[in-house]
Design a protein around this nucleic acid. Structure first.
Length: 199
DNA sequence: TCCACGATCGGCT
DNA sequence: GCCGATCGTGGAG
């Protein structure tokens, strides 16, 4: 399966956020890989008070200012990582947060990754809870600060075409967990998917 | 140097 | 529905 090219990621951010639905996210670890279909995304734009890039370039948000097709992984709440796909042009500072995926390959590894702390075990009793949230996705797919700034046009972490999601299957809503620009409808998910973080 | 806060999650009421 | 965990970041002073 062919990797998505740079030209996919350098489109307008809101376009990429919608088009990412149905795409396959793949992380190759040694000879194995973990993969899943993206079912929920959120866009963060350059003039967006909810975006990490809003106050300009800093050490933390540097990858957001790369050209489209890089990964931006950040650490939050003292314990979680979240992964974004950088979009649009170099120097702008836009990205799409991956909020949920439907597991495809490497389910065993996903379960292991999500069970590393026994205290979390009870929360993973239902399969959909493995990857229905941005920090759950990052943990399930072993995405940490090591992967911050990685190029998705290389061979370790990349996306493939997956399935086409018609626009009638895309639900558009406000974003979750933010305190600014709460009125912007920049969250997208696949209607009827059991794997989204919240209806 | 200090310190408030966060694109979350899981457990508890 | 609410709350605590836990720490890197960056704005303030």
């Amino acid at each position: 399966m062919q990797k998505l090219p740079r030209s996919f990621y350098t489109q307008r951010t809101l376009t990429v956020a919608k088009e990412l639905l149905g795409k396959i996210f793949i992380h190759k670890i040694g000879r194995r890989s973990i993969s899943g279909m993206i079912v929920e995304t959120e866009a963060y734009l350059f003039n967006d008070p909810a975006s990490h890039s809003f106050r300009g370039l800093t050490e933390r948000n540097r990858p957001m200012f790369y050209t489209g097709g890089f990964l931006y992984v950040y650490f939050t709440y003292g314990m979680h990582y979240c992964a974004n796909i950088v979009t649009f042009k170099e120097g702008i500072g836009e990205a799409v947060l991956i909020r949920a995926v439907e597991p495809i390959d490497g389910i065993g590894a996903i379960i292991t990754n999500r069970h590393t702390d026994v205290r979390h075990f009870k929360g993973v009793r239902h399969l959909h809870s493995l990857t229905n949230g941005p920090a759950k996705f990052a943990e399930a797919f072993s995405l940490t600060k090591e992967h911050n700034g990685i190029d998705l046009c290389e061979d370790e972490i990349f996306l493939t075409k997956g399935k086409n999601v018609s626009s009638s299957k895309i639900v558009t809503t406000t974003r979750i967990g933010i305190s600014a620009a709460t009125e912007k409808k920049w969250r997208f998910y696949i209607k009827d998917s059991a794997w989204v973080s919240k209806k």
